[in-house]
C-alpha cells in the first residue's frame, strides 16, 4: 500500500516535471539561505562566547585602603547583578605575575625601588550577561565608588560588534520567517496545480469509492519528498560553499584562534525536518482548500 502511494507521488513528479523542478529549486534556495544564516549564527556565537569567557572588568583601587573596607567593597561588588566572581589581586601578586611574564626584561624591574602597581579586583561576568550594555552599566557602577581609581574592561570594538551581532540575529529571524512562509506558499501553489491537473482522476477515484485519505496521501507524500529533497540540495550547496570558505579562513587571519565548523548532524536533521514540515504544510493548505469532498 505504502509502495503504491510512493509510486503515485513519483509519477506525479514525472508528469509535472517543470513545476516540480521549480518548486524544488525554490525550497532548496530557501533552505540554503536559512541554513547559511544558521551556520553563520552558530559560528559567530561560538566566537562571541570565546571572547566573552575572557570578559572581565578590572577595578584598580586607590592606594592604602584599609582591609576592612576592602572586604566591604568586595562584598558589595559581589551583589551587583551579572557578577559571577570577584577576585582580589594584591599589588604584590600583580607585581610577581608581571615579573614572571617579562622574564627577559627582568632588568627593567631592578631599577624600580617600589612596586608601582595598584591593588585590584578582577570581576568576572556570569555567562548570562550577554549584552554589552550590562557590562558598561556594571563598570560605571563600580567606577562611582570612592575606593576605585579606575575601571578597565573589554575592548570597545567588541561592544560594537555585539550590537551588530544582535541586529543581525534579529534580521536573521525575520528572514527565516519570511522564507518559511514563502516556501510554504510556493509549495501549496505547486500542490494546488498538481491537484488541478489531476482533478478528473480525483473525481474518478471518488466515484469508485476511494476514501479521502486514500486520495490525499500521495499529495502529502509528494510534499514531504519535495521538502526533504529540497533541503538536501540546499544543504549540499551550503556544504560546498562552506568547504571553500573554511579553507580560506583557516589559512588566513583567524588561523589557530578558533576553528569554524559546519552544522552538526542534529541541526542538519532539524533543518530537513523543518523543510519536510514546509512540504506537509503546503500540501495540507491546498488540500484543505481544493479537496473539500
Amino acid at each position: 500500500m505504502t509502495i503504491l502511494f510512493f509510486k503515485r507521488a513519483i509519477e506525479d513528479f514525472r508528469n509535472n516535471r517543470l513545476l516540480n523542478v521549480v518548486t524544488l529549486l525554490t525550497v532548496s534556495l530557501s533552505i540554503l539561505i536559512v541554513s547559511a544564516f544558521v551556520l553563520f549564527f552558530i559560528n559567530t556565537s561560538e566566537i562571541m562566547n570565546f571572547w566573552k569567557k575572557g570578559l572581565r572588568v578590572m577595578a584598580y583601587l586607590k592606594a592604602d585602603i584599609p582591609g576592612s573596607e576592602l572586604l566591604d567593597l568586595r562584598r558589595q561588588i559581589q551583589t551587583l547583578s551579572g557578577v559571577e566572581s570577584v577576585i582580589f589581586i594584591s599589588k604584590d601578586d600583580a607585581y610577581k605575575q608581571l615579573k614572571a611574564q617579562m622574564k627577559r626584561q627582568a632588568s627593567l624591574f631592578d631599577n624600580l625601588d617600589k612596586n608601582p602597581l595598584p591593588d585590584a579586583f578582577e570581576i568576572r561576568m556570569s555567562p548570562s550577561t550577554r549584552s554589552w550594555e550590562k557590562v558598561e552599566f556594571l563598570a560605571t557602577q563600580i567606577e562611582s565608588r570612592d575606593e576605585v581609581e579606575e575601571v578597565e574592561y573589554g575592548q570597545k570594538w567588541l561592544g560594537r560588534f555585539t550590537q551588530i551581532f544582535d541586529l543581525f540575529t534579529l534580521t536573521g529571524y525575520a528572514m527565516c520567517t519570511i522564507f518559511f512562509m514563502a516556501a510554504v506558499f510556493i509549495m501549496a501553489n505547486t500542490i494546488r496545480l498538481v491537484i488541478y491537473s489531476r482533478r478528473d482522476e480525483i473525481e474518478i477515484m471518488r466515484l469508485v469509492g476511494a476514501a479521502e485519505r486514500f486520495i490525499k496521501i500521495p499529495f502529502y507524500i509528494q510534499g514531504l519528498l519535495q521538502g526533504a529533497l529540497g533541503a538536501c540540495i540546499g544543504l549540499a550547496i551550503l556544504f560546498v560553499a562552506f568547504l571553500f570558505m573554511a579553507s580560506n579562513i583557516e589559512r588566513g587571519f583567524f588561523s589557530g584562534l578558533f576553528n569554524i565548523q559546519f552544522l552538526s548532524p542534529l541541526f542538519l536533521g532539524i533543518i530537513i525536518l523543518i523543510s519536510m514540515l514546509v512540504g506537509w504544510l503546503g500540501s495540507y493548505l491546498s488540500l484543505k482548500q481544493f479537496l473539500k469532498g
Binding site: 508528469n15 474518478i204 477515484m205 469508485v208 476514501a211
Partner: peptide
C-alpha cells in the same frame, strides 16, 4: 471516465486498492 495516464490494469485495480 478512465484515468488517461494510467494503464488498463491500473484503472481497474484502483477500485480494489481504494478498498
Amino acid at each position: 471516465k478512465l484515468i488517461a495516464n494510467r494503464t488498463v490494469f491500473d484503472n481497474v485495480s484502483l477500485v480494489l486498492e481504494a478498498a
